[in-house]
Amino acid sequence: MRGRVWKFGDDINTDVLAPGIYIKLPLDELALHCLESVEPNFAKQVKEGDIVVGGHNFGMGSSREQAAQVLMELGVAAVIAHSFGGIFYRNAFNLGLPAIVSRDVDQIAADQILEIDLRSGSLKNKTNGDELTSEAVPENLMALIEAGGLVPFLENKLTKKS
């Protein structure tokens, strides 16, 4: 997987990703407010396949799944962070959005191009040639990514049974 970087700081929370005041709106409209209080141009300028890079505790806060869903709606292909809010982390995989833990996020800057291998955890900065590392995605979560999320995963499982 390869993509251009959007860089954010620590503690990007679920209210910033999917503000409560717009939560009743359909997903495509809610997505237009994603991250607006920290980066007003994000929703307008983010492109299909871009990668969001955060710091500590990305996605902390509420259990609202829309926090991960709006990123996918806007075309974000993966999120890389030093650490994640635990519920956000589970939500992302359930929806089919890879959430990757990397201690090297400080070495990544906006607009650089990254290449990630989810299974091995290899992370290359194609812009400056840096070899970075990330944690390999656990097997049970890799299965969700491969299926495209928990719903298709369950669909496969249930049809196999019957």
Binding site: I87, R90, N91, G149, L154
Partner: peptide, 18 residues
């Protein structure tokens, strides 16, 4: 503990979670 909606869907239809 708290989980999101799709995680909850998994619980509601299977009665289990990881």
């Amino acid at each position: 503990f708290g989980i999101g909606a799709t995680d909850m869907l998994g619980v509601l239809v299977t009665g289990e979670t990881w």
